[in-house]
Design a protein around this nucleic acid. Structure first.
Lengths: 128, 128
DNA sequence: CTCAATTTGAGATTTGACTCTCACTTTCTA
DNA sequence: TAGAAAGTGAGAGTCAAATCTCAAATTGAG
């Protein structure tokens, strides 16, 4: 039996209004605006539960700490700006990714990450 | 000045004959077949040197420890087995990945990672 | 309401990956 | 070949992320 607590409600709300994937500390900080005493352990506990329920999804990008986002957002990939380190959502996906797997392999998921410079950083280039 | 030691020779050979990216402990274990006293610290030291020389490349895959492979192997992507945690090479690439980026973004690199079960683990499934 | 089951916060602990230290050994230039 | 520079192994140390502990507080079925 799982109790519905203000902590979980607040954490759930954070995921719902987030416009990008967040790290556990970011999630904690954000939820503290509503519940200032919220502990990081509780954040990790909630993440684990939410993941198990399929309410949120882990976004793991090489070279960055794990981020989490609402599972309601649909399948998408990321662009990592090598200059400013921000993550951007990519719109759309590529067909045929699964066919890269060898015979007999079962593909459950895939991630595509592009690395480079975002529009803002690419523009400043001359200035560097 | 860098000395050429049996340890580095053995570690270099491990990278040359590896058919998939390896983790430092895997590299250590493999090299110990030749030099049984080889320490993990030496593996890390060699990895750092080989990386600096461009002899090997880091393969950072979300949800897995860093792996390393010979830089001589060309552009390819990976399959991560969620059961046994091993990495496998994918043959080929997908066209059109770069076009996912928004206007004005400069794409330098991309990574594609498939997750699932490798042929061996997919087969054992009934037994679990 | 009552109260057993569950959850919480805070800090301690664990974990995992990696680096450092140090005494000893090896490499290779001069 | 002498010896300075570089490398080695083993274990201790580091660091950050994640988990555990436990007393106190909360939840919600009955």
């Amino acid at each position: 039996m799982m109790y519905l607590t203000p902590q979980k409600r607040a954490l759930g709300a954070v995921f719902e209004r987030a416009s990008r994937p967040l790290t556990p500390p970011e999630i904690c900080e954000e939820a503290r605006k509503e519940l200032p005493t919220l502990g990081l352990a509780t954040v990790y506990r909630a993440i684990k539960q939410f993941l198990a329920e399929g309410q949120i999804r882990a976004v793991e990008v090489p070279g960055a700490a794990p981020h989490y986002e609402s599972a309601a957002r649909h399948h998408h990939h990321f662009f990592v700006c090598c200059e400013c380190k921000r993550l951007f959502d990519l719109i759309g996906c590529v067909r045929g990714v699964q066919s890269l797997a060898p015979q007999g392999f079962r593909v459950r998921q895939h991630e595509i990450v592009l690395y480079g410079e975002c529009a803002a950083c690419a523009n400043q280039e001359g200035a560097l």
